[in-house]
Amino acid sequence: MIRHVVLIRFQPEVSEAKIAALFAELKEIEDKLPACLGITAGKSESPEKMERGYMHGFIADFTDWDGLQAYQDHSDHQIAGAKLTEHAQGGKDGILCFDLEVAGA
């Protein structure tokens, strides 16, 4: 399984309601891609308080690397990604992505 982790520093004026709407739009992609095992999004509630401004994010799990690529290439992902970038501090500079193969999953 491939885990796609995305952390976002939203611009201060972006409301929690707007962020929830952006994440809801992203979650709609889940049913359009057979290799997508699920998307979970939200706000950090970490007791460590080490987010460094990346207070929101999501995790998307895929069956394999080809599934992740299909997600990245999908037109709905391109649209949702552009909206997330538009609302992130500094555009793409306000977004971190990390992809990881999860053994045994």
Score class of each variant (00 low, 15 high):
E45P: 10
T85R: 05
I2Q: 10
P47W: 08
W65V: 04
L33I: 15
A24W: 01
D61Y: 06
Q69N: 10
R52K: 15
E51G: 05
Y71V: 11
E101D: 05
V5M: 11
A21E: 15
K18L: 15
S75Q: 11
R52N: 15
L22Q: 03
D66M: 00
K83H: 02
L68N: 07
L26R: 07
M50C: 12
I39G: 03
G104Y: 11
T63K: 13
G42M: 03
I59C: 04
H74A: 05
A105W: 13
K43F: 03
E101G: 06
D31L: 10
E28L: 13
G57M: 02
M55E: 07
V6Y: 00
I8Q: 03
Q69A: 09
R3V: 14
A80Q: 00
T63D: 11
H56E: 05
K83P: 00
S46T: 11
A70D: 13
M50Q: 14
L26M: 08
H77A: 08
D66N: 05
A24M: 08
E28R: 09
K27Q: 12
L7W: 12
H74M: 04
E28T: 11
M1I: 10
I39E: 00
V102G: 09
D99Q: 14
P47Q: 09
R3M: 14
K27W: 09
E13D: 07
S46A: 14
L26E: 04
S44W: 05
E25C: 10
V14Y: 05
L22R: 01
A103C: 08
K83A: 02
Y54N: 13
I79P: 05
E25K: 13
D31T: 10
D64E: 01
G57F: 03
L37S: 02
A41I: 03
H77D: 09
D31F: 06
G94L: 05
